[in-house]
Structure formats: structure tokens, C-alpha cells
Write a protein that binds this DNA or RNA. Structure first.
Length: 475
RNA sequence: GGUCCGUUCGUCUAGUCGGCCUAGGACACCAGGUUUUCAUCCUGGAGAUCAGGGGUUCGAAUCCCCUACGGACUACCA
């Protein structure tokens, strides 16, 4: 059995959006699942659309997400070069072969003539005008330096059939196909040509790509056949949508890997979520490590219909991963987001409090803003229907609590909490009531990611007492 | 316009060769419980007549046909 070889072939035109990432993931999973090779190839044949640093973005994304490639521009391999712009002479050679076989031809038509071919529906189909040029005309044109392209010569009759691993058997009439440009006038190939040559030369066994290529696949097969090459297995993937009728686009900004990463999403969570968008693992499990995904991945589980990207579910999954992180790791990731806090607090405690309460690390500044934001809070907060607390109750309770806390030697959560417990008895109120009142006095907020004793530990004895004094004063 | 592809809860989906589907799970939502408010966690609820219409069949979300809607392609972009 021949080796499984998959390739991720992005063009360096900007960010790595979620759809791209999923294609890379599936390529990776399929290759690893079958002990095959995962190859990275850079498709940079369109010089106009090149974006500075886009290749670095690709490397970085693959690196961060753990999708390690076996061959590629940076790691080498025996099928190189892995950058299309460096394979120029290869394409030229094969294009020549195609011309000799009659499967392609020179075309000297200019823009004006091409535009004149547009029909009433706005479609422009090339009329094979240059196919009928005499050898003499062709060599004259070539000699006089008239710009040219090389076009595929698609048969006028017959049909082309292929089997896609996701969509099944697809048949198209050849007369519906266009004589695509294979080599551009700048000497570089189009995707329509380069992908065929490269996939063959790199011995790619399974071609994973977006389903936008489904309708041009017959063109590619005609090319494979003209060369006498074996056609690879096709795995066309449904699109990931922003909403019911819009594809996720690079322009949208927030749908790319780097942004999510920078917002504090974990690569494992992003990968996990993306894997499940359009693929079903045949279990009801929702959380998977990359290794588990490798184990389970199966083309049969890929769905045919497009999926809408749901940031809410990604967030939930990310929260799950965050809760499972070990404390030190959490602390490291969270630290940069603590900078906004001016009040000195216990970072370790803050982290344990936060870990179960955030869906992404960028939630932190907002979640901890209450620490600094204390002055002149609304005293009406002491009135709570649920706990049945009143302002009066606060007036009587807080001075007692304040005194008791002043005398407390051990400033730990346990000590403080048990102090509260004893005080409820001496004051004759419910624990829930005391805790509510004290927490309000310490935080000035109805809802905080910590309780009345945790807050004391968090901001320390000095500040705790100061805040309580302030509140007693105001009451 | 033409060609190709798709259509199950708001969203991601299960549903292999028609019967166990009075359509299952997850997110989101709602309610209750635990908890030091919040969050976590636990329990429960609501939510799809399977796009619509015709067939085939004893029986269809599952097979066939038509219609509608959505998407892709129709570039010297990939």
C-alpha cells in the first residue's frame, strides 16, 4: 500500500482563518492517523496578493497549534522546493509537455478580445480562438514577443466523472468546462495548474481542500489524464460560515487563529472546536486532545453541509480547558492581564478565584475591575431581598465585624471565615446575611468573583480594615 | 443565466444499508438544588411534524421525483 501523504497548501495572503486552520487540521489528523506524512506547501503564484509576513503567520499558527509538518519550506524534504514561486521552471516544463500532447495551447488574446466574449448573462467563456492558430503564426507571435498565456484544451464532448470522499460521485459534461489559463503571462502557473503538477510530483495521496474547488476538479482530472498521472483521492470540505449566507472571511477580522490566541484562547480549545465543525467523531464526547483526534479521525465523519462558526460554544470549550489547567500554568497565562489592577492583591488567590469564572483570558480585566473600583458605591446594595438584609442591619453588624477583624491574628481564609461564623451567633443573624453585608462593604459590588472572607485575603488586612472603616463612616 | 453542491432544535450535530425516532447529545436559553454573592457543579424543562410537495412501501428524517431556499464556481485569485 502506498504511503498516505497530505498537504496543507495555503497562499500567503494574510491571516490564517478558521476554515484554513480546519483544513490544516484534517490534513494533519488524516496523515497521522494513517502513519503518513503531512506536508506544507506555500502557494504564492499570485504576486499581487502577497502579504508581508504572511508566511511567518502560517508557520506560527502551525507551531502554536501543534500541527507539526514533516516536509515544508522550513524543514525541507525530498520533494522540494515547497514554495511554488521557486518551482517556476518545473511548471514551464510540464506546460510544454501538455502543449505537445495537444492538451494545452498558446493563447495570445488580449483583454479587449476576451471581454468581447462576454455573453448576455455576464459569463465569459473562451472560444478556443488561439487553438486554431497555425504553427507558423504561433512561432511568429512568440518571436515578436507578444504576451501569451497557456490554456488548457478541454474536450468539447464527453463527460468527466470523479469520486469525492465526502460528496460522492460527481459527473460534469466537458462542454460546461472552461479552457482555463494554466500559465500566466508572467510565466507563473495558476492554481489550476500548479496544484496538479505539485500534488503529483509530491506524491500527495489525499487532497483536502475547500469545496469551492469541487466544480473545477474535473478540469484537474483532465490534466492528470493528459499526463497519464494517477488521480489523488479528493476530500472536499464544506465551508465554515459567519452566518447562514456568508462565508467566514479574512476581512471579518475576528475569525482567525491569531486573534483568538491573542484574546486568550488556548490552541487546544480552538483546535478542538474547529475539529468538530463539520466532522463528527461518532461519540457524544465533546472534549478531545489532539492525540485523541488523531486516533478517531475518519473521513466518513465529515459532513456535506456548511457550518456556522459559533464563538459562544468555542468560549465554553475554552473555559473547560482553562478550568483544567494546572494552577501555575494558569498563572503564567493570566499574569499579563493582571496589570490593570492598581490595588496590591494576592495573585495566587486571584488566580484560583478566576480560573473557574472565565471563558478566555481577556475576560480578566473586566472581571477584576471591581477591586480598584470601590469609592462611593451605592449603599442601597446592603438591602437584599433574598438574604433579607437591611441598611440598619449593616449599621449594627459592620462595627462589630470591624473590631473582631482588627483583633484577628491569623489572616487566612479559614480563620476569617470561622470568625464570621462565630459572629453570626453573637449578632443573632444568619450567616448568609452577614456574608452579604461584609462582602458589600469590602467590594462595593453586588456580584464579585469572591466571597466575604476571600476578599479579605485578596486585598490584605490593612486595606480590608480601611474599607470597612470607610463604610462604617458612611453609614 | 448556466453548472455543481447542500437543506434534522437558534447553533454544532446523532440518525450507516427504511421499522428500536413518541428524532438522541452538546452550546445557548429557562427553572430548581448545592455554594460565601457570582461562577463552577448537579437535576430538570422548553426547543426540530426532519425545507415544502408528491410518490415507492405494511412502514421514510432515512429510497425516487419535483419545487423552494442557501452556497460555490463561472478570473492571467486561490
Amino acid at each position: 500500500m502506498t504511503e498516505i501523504r497530505t498537504r496543507f497548501a495555503p497562499s500567503p495572503t494574510g491571516f490564517m482563518h478558521i476554515g484554513n486552520l480546519r483544513t490544516a487540521l484534517y490534513c494533519y489528523l488524516y496523515a497521522r492517523h494513517n502513519n503518513g506524512k503531512f506536508i506544507l506547501r506555500i502557494e504564492d503564484t499570485d504576486q499581487q496578493r502577497q502579504v508581508e509576513n504572511a508566511v511567518e503567520v502560517i508557520y506560527n499558527t502551525l507551531l502554536l497549534s501543534g500541527l507539526v509538518h514533516d516536509e515544508g519550506p522550513d524543514v525541507g524534504g525530498s520533494y522540494g522546493p515547497y514554495v511554488q514561486s521557486e518551482r517556476k521552471t518545473i511548471y514551464a516544463k510540464y506546460a510544454q509537455q501538455l502543449i505537445e500532447k495537444g492538451a494545452a495551447y498558446y493563447c495570445f488574446c488580449g483583454k479587449e478580445r476576451l471581454d468581447s466574449l462576454v455573453d448576455e448573462s455576464g459569463t465569459r467563456k473562451y472560444d478556443k480562438h488561439c487553438l486554431h492558430l497555425s504553427p507558423q503564426e504561433i512561432s511568429d507571435n512568440l518571436a515578436s514577443g507578444i504576451p501569451y498565456v497557456i490554456r488548457q484544451n478541454v474536450p468539447l464532448d464527453g463527460t468527466t466523472t470523479f469520486i469525492d470522499q465526502v460528496y460522492g460521485e460527481i459527473t460534469v459534461e466537458n462542454k460546461e468546462l472552461h479552457d482555463n489559463v494554466l500559465m500566466k503571462s508572467d510565466g507563473l502557473p495558476t492554481y489550476n495548474f500548479a496544484n496538479v503538477v505539485d500534488d503529483h510530483l509530491m506524491e500527495i495521496s489525499h487532497v483536502f481542500r475547500g469545496m469551492e474547488y469541487l466544480s473545477s476538479t474535473p478540469n484537474y482530472n483532465l490534466l492528470y489524464n493528459a499526463f497519464g498521472w494517477e488521480i489523488p483521492q479528493y476530500v472536499h470540505l464544506p465551508h465554515i460560515m459567519r452566518d447562514k449566507s456568508h462565508k467566514l472571511s479574512k476581512r471579518q477580522g475576528d475569525a482567525n487563529f491569531e486573534d483568538f490566541y491573542n484574546k486568550g484562547y488556548l490552541p487546544e480549545a480552538i483546535l478542538n472546536y474547529v475539529a468538530l465543525l463539520g466532522w463528527n467523531p461518532k461519540t457524544e464526547q465533546e472534549q478531545f486532545s489532539l492525540e485523541e483526534l488523531v486516533q478517531l479521525f475518519d473521513i466518513a465523519g465529515i459532513s456535506k453541509s456548511s457550518a456556522i462558526f459559533d464563538p459562544v460554544k468555542l468560549r465554553w470549550l475554552n473555559g473547560l480547558y482553562i478550568k483544567e489547567m494546572d494552577v501555575d500554568e494558569f498563572l503564567t497565562r493570566a499574569l499579563p492581564f493582571y496589570r490593570t489592577v492598581k490595588t496590591p492583591v494576592s495573585i495566587a488567590l486571584l488566580s484560583t478565584l478566576l480560573q473557574s469564572r472565565i471563558g478566555a483570558f481577556t475576560d480578566i480585566p473586566e472581571k477584576i475591575a471591581f477591586i480598584d473600583n470601590y469609592d462611593n458605591y451605592d449603599l442601597a446594595l446592603f438591602e437584599n431581598k433574598d438574604a433579607k438584609t437591611t441598611l440598619d442591619m449593616a449599621r449594627q453588624t459592620l462595627p462589630v465585624v470591624l473590631n473582631a477583624l482588627r483583633d484577628l491574628q491569623q489572616w487566612t481564609n479559614e480563620a476569617i471565615f470561622s470568625l464570621y461564623s462565630t459572629l453570626t451567633e453573637t449578632l443573632g443573624i444568619k450567616k448568609k446575611q452577614l456574608l452579604w453585608i461584609v462582602r458589600i462593604a469590602l467590594t462595593g459590588h453586588a456580584s464579585t468573583p469572591c466571597g466575604a472572607s476571600e476578599m479579605c485575603v485578596l486585598i490584605g488586612k490593612k486595606l480590608s480594615l480601611k474599607r470597612l472603616e470607610e463604610t462604617v463612616e458612611r453609614l
